[in-house]
Structure formats: structure tokens, C-alpha cells
Amino acid sequence: MDKKLEPIVKSVQDKFSATFEEFRDEVHLFLKPEQIVDALTLLRDEFNFELLSALTAVDYYPQETPRFHVVYQLTSIAKNRSVQIRVPVNGSSPKIPTATHVYDVANWRERELLDMFGIEFDGHPDPRRILSPEDMEGHPLRKDFPLGYEEPQFTFNFDEIDLRKPYAKE
């Protein structure tokens, strides 16, 4: 591990009994959902992580406990270092406290997760879908959501697809 990251990891580990993983010099800290706001506040205020670079999730379907990892990628501009926090969330009605009060950027990013993964954020000020149409069903980035592949039209199957393709009217 990078020497500069050691005190940070140590302090988060002591405070929140977090575990960590390492891969190609990147540090992933694993926290529980209820600790995330405190941890982000600590990292922002004491270790200069001013920037929440990315906030996203990974779906490990069909595994259910935990099904999702919510990923917080933090960057410190002053000290030029990064750390990643992962919060495992269960598959049935996934819920996690919002980080909007710590970083404003979390507002839209969390709406995106709500839209794409159906992860709910407790206390979010504006819980609406952001990218998909309002009337859409399902959450596209979940692994059990189909990609929606349509058969391409070639010469050999042109007529067959032509019949069922919903052409627009004048």
C-alpha cells in the first residue's frame, strides 16, 4: 500500500472496524451502510478528501446478501491521493443513507443509482428518476434486466422483420 494512505486506512479501520482490500495500489475500504455518512464526513474534514469523484454501484446478482456494492471514489486534491469506499447492500429493498449533506454531487449521482439500480437513499431531497423516462419499469443496470437486443435486419430476414417492425405513420 502507498505509504501516504496508511494513516487514513488505519484511522477508518479503528473507527468503523472496516476491512480493506488492495489491488494495483488501489485501496478499497468496506463499510456498513449506517456508517457511510460518518466515514465520508471524517474523510472530508480530516483527510482533505474534497472531491467525491465517482459514486456508483455494482450488481452481483444472483448473489443476494449482499447483492450490491455502492462505490464511493474519493479524491484529495490537496494531498493528491485517492481512496475507494465500498458499501455492501442487500438485494431485497436496498437502502442506504444519503450522502447529499456531505457532498452536493451525491444528489444527482444517487438519483442515478435509484434510477439504474433501484437503490434507495434515505433522506434524499429529490428522489426522482434522472435518466430514464418516468414511466419506465425496472432498473436497467441490474443484471437481471435484459439488454433489449433486437434482431438486426439483413437481406435474408428482411421481409420477416419488416412485417413486425412498428413503422411510424404519417
Binding site: 436497467p140 434486466f145 439488454l147 433486437e150 412498428p166 413503422y167 411510424a168 405513420k169
Partner: peptide, 15 residues
Amino acid sequence: FNNYAIFQGVDEVVP
């Protein structure tokens, strides 16, 4: 983009 988000040809929307 053969996926859920994109119309497979705009002729499904306008002639």
C-alpha cells in the same frame, strides 16, 4: 446501440 434505451431506427417514430 442495440439495447433497451435506443429506438432501432427512427422510422419507428417518424416516416
